[in-house]
Write a protein that binds this DNA or RNA. Structure first.
Lengths: 205, 205
DNA sequence: CTACTAAACGGACCACGGTCCAGTTGTCTG
DNA sequence: CAGACAACTGGACCGTGGTCCGTTTAGTAG
């Protein structure tokens, strides 16, 4: 029974060691720079580890997977969007009618995709992003707005369903293979949201 | 049972060599069996090649990628769905109003996902499915129905956008992580389609 | 300062998807 | 039947994402 009786309940985790923190910053910096210079699909994890002056094991210990690293690199931009719909000006932020806020949310997300689609797509491998913190925040926001529009609707499922049309994989395809510009995509989102929950329900099939 | 096509279009390519045809069948058979026995994510391409009694090079020469092989294994089921909405009974087939056909299409697709989600997901890696023949057929079908509902709408983009909510990755997540049953998903699809193009348009933002 | 321990480290290692190419084989032509 | 050639073949090979584990080090207690 060499167990110390500290009961460190409050301090859930021990603080990050200083060398660990330093390496985390190095990795994020190197990844951001390389992704930006050559595009995410042309940078391997080995290269990032080398550029950061860190072993591969360290890289994966910190971030777990390539997709998670991409998400972490993007977290700054995601946080900005999040800030916008939580505390920003209407119509994105509080104050506007929920339907307008929902449209504004989609447009903001599409702007983010327009700027960082490849990187966001790198985080969408095998549905990994669906478990990420930024996705959860967006989904919650969308679900709350939907519930505000119609308290009786299945907001949870509808939120995921709507968010699927804002995925980076789809965006890249529509932009590159189908030559659809940002404005058309925003238009489609608007049509979708304008209609959702507006029609009288029919019997389930 | 892929019966020989009666009209060999223009015979643009030399006919498939008999040994090549035999190997193709062997590969498809082995892949179908292994995927079915252990789940697609637990079967490597090496194993499929071995089980088919074929070299790895042959496997990739035939099918190009793991995603394409998964799609090929599914082609029979996809063709069935396709047959259903082209020549089947209403409301899926011709005869019903376009909106009802669209709802029926989504439900049929969700039934297909319910039966083969893992396999379909294996074909959705890196947006590969968006270039596949079955996807193109479905997208065309959806776009035609949308145009029928509203000739002025942006049917192309809306079709891709709507189809995104029927992706296998999303289905698996909603089913496994969110515990959403088939009926709820069908309900969300219905809400989406009921509303689309019904609301009066507002000014683009 | 020394002793101790949990955490962090890094690079060898692994399995996988995918490529390459030298050799083989089916098919067509004369 | 022989000769020629395109198509097919298989397995060695490669780079990648991800894991493992023996070693090092930051932080702490005495």
């Amino acid at each position: 029974m060499s167990e110390p009786l500290e009961l460190p309940v409050i301090q859930s985790q021990r603080a990050e060691r200083t060398d660990a923190a330093r390496n985390r910053e190095r990795i994020l910096g190197a990844a951001r720079r390389l992704f930006d210079e050559r595009g995410p699909s042309c940078v391997s994890m080995d290269e990032i580890a080398d550029a950061a002056g860190v072993g591969k094991g360290t890289l994966f210990r910190r971030f777990g997977s390539r997709a998670a690293l991409a998400t972490a690199v993007l977290s700054e931009n995601e946080a900005e969007l999040q800030e916008g719909f939580i505390r920003g000006e209407p119509p994105l932020g509080p104050g506007a009618p929920p339907r307008e806020r929902l449209i504004a949310f989609g447009c903001a997300r599409l702007d983010l995709l327009d700027a960082h689609a490849e990187l966001i797509a790198a985080g969408e491998v095998a549905g990994a992003h669906l478990d990420s913190e930024p996705y959860a925040a967006s989904r919650l926001h969308v679900a709350l707005l939907l519930r505000e529009i119609d308290p009786a609707c299945d907001a949870e499922v509808l939120a995921d369903t709507l968010m699927a049309s804002l995925s980076a994989g789809l965006f890249l395809y529509q932009r590159d293979a189908r030559q659809a510009g940002l404005e058309r995509l925003k238009g489609a989102w608007q049509v979708l949201v304008e209609g959702a929950l507006k029609a009288e329900q029919v019997q389930p099939v």
